[in-house]
Amino acid sequence: MLTRVLPVFVVVAAITGLWYLACIPMNAHQSVTDLERAGEVVVPGGAAERRDMAGVSLVLQNPAAVQAAFGQERPRLPAPHQVGAEIWETTANKRITSKRSLVYHGWITLSATLLGFAIGTVAGIALAVGIVHVRAMDMSVMPWAIASQTIPILAIAPMIIVVLNSVGVQGLVPKAMISAYLSFFPVVVGMVKGLRSPDRMQLDLLTTYSATRAQTLWKLRLPASMPYLFTSLKIGIAASLVGAIVGELPTGAAGGLGARLLAGSYYGQTIQIWAALFWAAILAATLVGLIGLIQRVTLNRMGMAA
């Protein structure tokens, strides 16, 4: 246990330490300005004089700026404990129906993520089945699928939302479409490989039973593709979450982690941005972990554990 936890702990501690260290020069200008307003003597005096100075040299000339870097209201880089406190405050100390609760916003994003993930997975599996069975699809679909992923999602997301809005579809579905757009691709790639994983001998065996293609699909190809499917789903669900967040940005949506990020950047609420970012990261890790768990249980039951 210790051997597994220790490396993780060391890495987290190192990142946290670096983060605190980076706060000092990043927030130096504000620190020195705050000190000056409080009546302390700072070098050089006057914010205009300091504007073009590097944070590091500012701190070297004003050692008091070190302490002032960790408690600002709108720091350039919030300290870890500030972000932690904000997460705690907006997660545990707010009613989950409150617009200031990250649980509220997280749920809005999560629902779009899950719907988009479901659509993307079904579409991905359907396309993969088509690619494996229809030669014309094999030749034609894959290049388009790859091309679709080369378009920046930030470019296409507003268009999807505007187009769907013009036909009267709003709210959850447009965001889910963007999630689906990102998550179908890894499922297609993984499932094509998975459905083709049975070897010649296994396919010959079914031929000797005069099995139909549908029977081959249900009894051999689909079960054999499970390990590939789960690997794809893990990538797909993380992509779905990104899609849902990106989908919330251009709408000026009232809710969701994306809206929270956008609002934070409008009003210079850096702590709020970081808290929403961490919430999104924790959500993604939880979703991926959950699929990993289902993967382990399923593959163990199927006797296919890696």
């Binding site: 001998m201 296994q202 010959d204 065996l205 000797t208 005069s210 051999l220 079960p223 499970m226 039951r301 199927m302 006797g303 296919m304």
Partner: peptide, 15 residues
């Protein structure tokens, strides 16, 4: 269904 075929490997489905 005139014949049954046995291959080199058992090829049983693990699931």
């Amino acid at each position: 269904r005139a014949y049954g075929y046995v291959f080199q490997a058992a090829g049983l489905y693990p699931w």
